[in-house]
Simulated scan of single mutants.
Amino acid sequence: MLKDTFGRSFPYIRLSITDVCNYKCSYCLPQGYKKNPGDMRSFMSFEEISRLTKTLSELGVCKIRLTGGEPTVRKDFFDILKDMKQNSNIPKVTMTTNGYQLNKIANQLHEAGLDGINISIDSLNRETFKKLTGHDRLYEILEGIKILQTLNFKNIKVNAVLLKDINDTPEEFEKFGNFIKNNKIDFRFIELMQTGDNLDYFKKNHVASKIFKDYLEKNKWVTQTHGKDAGPSLNFIHPDYKGKFGLIAPYSKNFCQTCNRLRITSRGDLRLCLFGNTGISIRHLLQNDNQKDELVNLIIKQLHLKKESHYLELGDTGITPNLSSTGG
């Protein structure tokens, strides 16, 4: 198992396969995707990703989440997904997506063996969704979710970034509540995080996650225990609802104590923390199968450098310019 000096183990890897995103979300890429002129490296190839995931499985990793950018913009996305399911021995492969063309690819995702999907929906109001993302595609996403449900796809989660005066009112919470009342879907609010290039937006739109937690407790939602490969969400259940509510609150006290995930960027950099100040390339050890032992040793050595916590509460966003650049 991968372990750090604080006794935390890491069975969960967030693996970005592209920085490219076709949305223009106001909190992440308001001007749309632009290539970093200072980094001319290509994205990891199919072969490099395949070698990486096979090695990770031998290190005790039992869950990989494919992220971006938007992972489905890669032409070989389904080849990568199928290889992970069929050849890597990773028990659980999930993905995070903006839901672009979900209604058209839902069947393919199911057939490829995807184990879970996280879909970004910041508002169930069509105009608000369009304003936040730059795309009028809410209906297509909701249709895609229905298709997955008809296929008996079990693990569907919806994420929304909590934004001041946009989706932070009891009325908005109730809309999402009605959405999950008869749908076995986990809906989670993510507290807006400051990154290297969104300080003004953060100051204007950040609202503490406590506002949602207070709403849940007031309405008799009860916290649920974490699974070993679960993400950072604090989940809540209610006897009258088929779905669950969740809350990801990176500014909360002791948030990092239960950290169980590492990140690998689309260009092959190992990141110990989303908001860390360091990263190291492991790509040079993904060029042939004989490099596996060196790769294992490098990853284990790097874990000794993982810090106990991020320093977001101090305004230290590390080397993360925006969430798309490191897989969110």
Rank of each mutant, 00 (worst) to 15 (best):
G243K: 03
T67E: 08
G276D: 04
L314H: 14
G60D: 09
F176Y: 15
Q257I: 03
T67D: 08
G32M: 08
L285T: 00
L52P: 13
S16L: 02
S324N: 12
Q302Y: 05
K244H: 15
G113K: 03
K164D: 01
P239D: 12
L29E: 05
M44D: 00
M40G: 06
S123V: 04
F43L: 13
H135G: 00
M1H: 08
Q101A: 13
Q149R: 12
K203R: 14
D122K: 08
N118M: 01
S123E: 04
L199W: 06
T128R: 12
P170A: 10
K203C: 12
F255A: 07
Y12I: 05
L162G: 12
Q194Y: 08
I282D: 05
G134P: 14
Q302V: 08
Y33P: 01
L298I: 14
S88N: 03
R271A: 03
S9W: 07
E172N: 11
S45D: 04
L295P: 06
G246F: 10
T5Y: 11
K146S: 15
L81M: 04
T265D: 01
K146M: 14
L272V: 02
T326S: 08
Q224D: 07
K204L: 11
N254P: 00
D39K: 05
P232Q: 06
K253L: 13
Q86L: 12
L323Y: 01
K104N: 09
S16A: 15
F187G: 05
E174Y: 03
L303A: 02
D165S: 11
N89M: 11
E172K: 13
I282F: 08
N152R: 12
S252G: 09
Q224W: 09
N235W: 00
T96N: 05
D19H: 13
L305H: 15
L295F: 03
L162R: 07
T225S: 15
V207T: 14
V20T: 10
P250C: 02
C256N: 07
D168G: 05
S281L: 09
T225C: 05
N260L: 06
K228F: 14
E143Q: 15
Q257S: 13
L199V: 11
C259K: 09
L29V: 00
T225E: 13
S16C: 08
K220C: 09
N277V: 06
I141N: 06
T320P: 06
Q101I: 02
